[in-house]
């Protein structure tokens, strides 16, 4: 049994579902256009403080220019004897996961005809610093467990909201990045 997935004209979460569905069809017909490359550059400022810049990306078979630049700063907190100029990189990862899931919730809700009034994700990751400090080799550097809680105000049943959040995880890039291994190649020069 499938749930009805009609596009309701009365629901507006600010997501253009029709355009997304068109894009899906177009990219299914031309899978080479679906090959994207996302990029950022990061420059050291001082100490643990750095500034990343995000501008163009590759997709739909060509370079895409946004005509504007975003910056993301990162630093470490004072308890690490740093200046705390910005969020730590791991908090940016958590923000990335929460943003990705939240965007997914809005898109899936639009597709399923659910009007959202408010959505708030609270995210927390456990980390044992014995890993990054090299105290215990058996402790990993990264998060042990990540927990996300969604507080959603919408005209929908509890199960519908759970299904919304579950579907958002299923289609989330950052959720996949965090839960599955990825080959990373780092070069110099």
């Amino acid at each position: 049994m499938t749930t009805a997935q009609t596009i309701s004209p009365d629901v507006d979460n600010g997501v253009n579902v029709a355009a997304l569905i068109d894009a899906r069809e177009a990219l299914e017909a031309a899978p080479e256009a679906a090959q994207f490359k996302w990029r950022a550059t990061c420059e050291w400022v001082n100490g643990t403080h750095s500034r990343s810049t995000v501008e163009g990306f590759f997709g739909l078979g060509e370079e895409q220019s946004r005509g504007k630049t975003f910056t993301v700063e990162a630093d470490h907190p004072e308890v690490f004897a740093a200046e705390d100029n910005a969020a730590t990189p791991v908090e940016i990862v958590l923000s990335g996961l929460a943003s990705c899931l939240t965007a997914g919730v809005a898109a899936v809700a639009q597709h399923r005809g659910i009007q959202l009034r408010s959505v708030k994700a609270t995210i927390e990751g456990d980390m044992d610093l014995q890993g990054i400090l090299g105290i215990d080799d058996e402790v990993r550097n990264g998060f042990g467990t990540i927990r996300v809680n969604f507080d959603i105000d919408a005209d929908a049943s509890e199960d519908d909201l759970k299904a919304l959040v579950a579907q958002s995880q299923k289609r989330s890039a950052v959720f996949d990045i965090v839960t599955n291994p990825t080959n990373v190649f780092v070069t110099v020069g």
Partner: peptide
């Protein structure tokens, strides 16, 4: 290596 998505797949 196993994915950390088990909980969600079971919820779905």
């Amino acid at each position: 290596q196993f994915s950390g998505s088990l909980k969600n797949l079971c919820a779905l």
